[in-house]
Design a protein around this nucleic acid. Structure first.
Length: 260
DNA sequence: CGTGCCCCCTGTCAGC
DNA sequence: TGCTGACAGGGGGCAC
């Protein structure tokens, strides 16, 4: 990274001065993920001090690579531009600006990572562990799944899809899930996420992969965004209810309260 | 401390 | 055609 241009200061968690001081002259070691956050492991310019650039795309964020000499139209809503050695650019683009970029030293990175719940696709995410955690909350299960401190990386689409697969009503208080429903939910979360990743995600309108492609999972959605459509299992019309500020979609027949 | 509500912001679409 | 309101994949702050 040669130079950092911050076009939208509200996207940067840390003060702009610190952000630039960390990033300018630094290089990318490796790229990873924690929950819904991109984690770029970096090395500082002089002594190679390790730190991390953490990026949350929010609702409309994209990370775009522009190679040197790219003649295509420049993106409409650039927020942060990283000018790279050799003339390329990495552009953080975000129409709604709900995304955030921040730098963290290794200690802060560790604290932050520990504040998030387990990765649902990791071995550490077990059915008994999920059941234990659910038992400690009275929140509606759909809201519980969206809480990144409980499980990391599940958003509204896949929370709703997993609840349909597990036949659990989205408003069910977490602690009232019967053991076999929490086991079913554990499996459903993992299978839905794996399928969706294999399909490269869900494009409802805006979402594109890092290579600009649409995700292939939208046609496979069972309930999300399908209000009024027939449930694939029983043909009952899918319903939508709003709580916690977001829509929940479900089959009132397959996912009735107390369905076992 | 856990939970629920509001807000951040821009774009799109349905309904009038 | 143009206006208004609802809604959108996320998450932080705050009151209770």
């Amino acid at each position: 990274v040669r130079r950092v241009e911050i076009l939208r200061a509200d996207l940067i968690g840390t003060p702009a001065r610190d952000f630039r001081r960390f990033m300018e002259g630094a290089g990318v070691d490796r790229v990873g993920r924690r929950g819904k956050n991109l984690v770029l492991r970096m090395r500082g310019p002089r002594d190679g001090t390790p730190f991390a650039l953490v990026i949350n795309l929010g609702m409309s964020g994209r990370l775009l690579m522009r190679e040197a000499g790219d003649r295509s139209r420049s993106p409409s809503h650039p927020g942060v531009r990283f000018r790279l050695e050799g003339g390329g650019q990495l552009v953080y683009h975000d129409i709604r600006r709900f995304g955030r970029l921040g730098v963290m030293d290794p200690e802060a990175l560790g604290r932050w990572s520990r504040s998030l719940g387990p990765e649902p696709l990791a071995r550490a995410f077990t059915a008994p562990g999920l059941a234990d955690a659910l038992a400690r909350s009275s929140a509606p299960i759909r809201s519980w799944l969206l809480d990144q401190r409980k499980v990391a990386g599940v958003g509204n689409i896949y929370a709703n899809e997993a609840l349909f697969v597990a036949r659990v009503h989205p408003a069910t208080p977490a602690r009232t899930l019967p053991p076999e429903r929490s086991r079913a939910l554990h499996g459903a979360l993992r299978s839905v996420l794996r399928e969706a990743i294999r399909a490269r995600g869900t494009t409802l309108r805006d979402y594109r992969t890092a290579h600009g492609l649409e995700g292939g999972y939208a046609p496979k959605l069972r309930v999300y965004g399908r209000e009024g459509g027939a449930c694939a299992r029983c043909r009952t019309p899918v319903r939508r209810v709003a709580f916690g500020g977001r829509s929940a979609y479900f089959c009132p027949s397959c996912q009735g309260e107390g369905t076992t």
